[in-house]
């Protein structure tokens, strides 16, 4: 048993390193061949008027005159040492640039995850196998919310709750109050999707014979739902971890821009615009790292939630976000 878990973890780790290496290589190649004069980008800006000496200095300092393989190798080498290079635009180490922003994004993503998961679970528990009109309302609103782009939802939330009713601040990363609207804008569309999946799973489970037998033993409806059904219904939710974490990270770019929050999403967007290769590379590696880590956690979670899987052959386990 322990051997099996160790082998699983080891295998996942190796696969994960492969993914990270592939990610680093891919993004490096891709960004290396992007057209554009990087030296100018480094000292750029609307009002910039750098002298030739400044340009020469920058080219030498950033190794921009080196051949591509030298740049690639030195990149991989530095990544191995935990050095993601220096941002062209910010003139600070990338790890520092990301580190400064990571807290805010983590805060937002966590808040949104809690809101999204709680909301979808509560709604699904309350509406699964209920009367037709209740289910209709629930699935209808899930459909509408899941179909609303988060940037428009954000604009609506801002207009109503911040500019209109002045219930919540519109901006920034200042305390719990300022977290409410961005977290909602990020969480609601995801909650719509998850709620839909969860309710379907619950309705399936509630038809199972062991639920029927639990009910005949006289257990209250709520107890049945919470104690017996929910556990099984959570499996698809965990299977979808890759999806909703990805949606949180991708959505952060938009939510942070819209609500003027600090964070990795905004850092990435400005880096993309300025062709700040080290920062883009850094964020991409970070996201790949999170993905690899999640794969591992999800695999372990399956073992906890569904003991039957412990005896199943390793290949039968669903991968995160994959259909294999």
């Amino acid at each position: 048993m322990r051997n099996k878990i160790l082998r699983l973890v080891g295998g996942r780790l190796i696969a994960g390193v492969g993914v990270l290496w592939g990610a680093a290589t891919l993004t490096f190649l891709v960004l290396y061949f992007t057209p554009g004069d990087q030296a100018q980008a480094i000292v750029g800006g609307e009002n910039a008027a750098p002298t030739p000496e400044v340009i020469a200095q920058v080219t030498a300092e950033y190794g921009l005159d080196q051949p591509w393989y030298a740049q690639y190798l030195s990149h991989l080498g530095r990544i191995l040492h935990g050095d993601l290079g220096t941002s062209y635009r910010l003139h600070t180490p990338v790890t520092q640039a990301i580190g400064e922003q990571a807290g805010a994004t983590l805060e937002l993503a966590l808040a949104a995850a809690v809101v999204g998961l709680t909301l979808s679970t509560v709604v699904a528990l309350a509406t699964a196998k209920r009367r037709r009109w209740i289910r209709g309302i629930a699935s209808g609103s899930e459909l509408v919310i899941a179909s609303t782009p988060s940037f428009w939802l954000g604009i609506l939330l801002l207009t109503v709750f911040s500019f209109g009713l002045r219930l919540f601040p519109a901006t920034g990363s200042h305390g719990l109050q300022s977290l409410v609207l961005p977290a909602l804008a990020l969480a609601l569309p995801i909650a719509g999707v998850l709620g839909h999946v969860l309710r379907e799973a619950l309705e399936e489970v509630l038809d199972e014979p062991f639920i029927v037998s639990a009910r005949t033993r006289g257990l209250a409806d709520l107890t049945v739902r919470l104690r017996h059904a929910l556990r099984h219904a959570l499996v698809p939710l965990i299977t979808m971890t890759g999806y909703w974490v990805g949606a949180l990270l991708g959505g952060a770019v938009i939510t942070e821009t819209l609500f003027t929050r600090q964070g990795i999403g905004r850092l990435l967007l400005s880096a993309v615009n300025a062709k700040d290769l080290p920062v883009v590379l850094g964020v991409v590696l970070l996201s790949a790292g999170i993905y690899v880590l999640l794969n591992l956690v999800v695999d372990l979670l399956y073992l906890v939630i569904d003991p039957r899987l412990r005896d199943a052959p390793a290949t039968a386990r669903p991968a995160v976000g994959g259909a294999s």
Partner: peptide, 10 residues
């Protein structure tokens, strides 16, 4: 040049 001054130097 190490200051990478985009304006003051000019």
């Amino acid at each position: 040049p190490a200051t990478k001054s985009p304006l003051a130097a000019a």
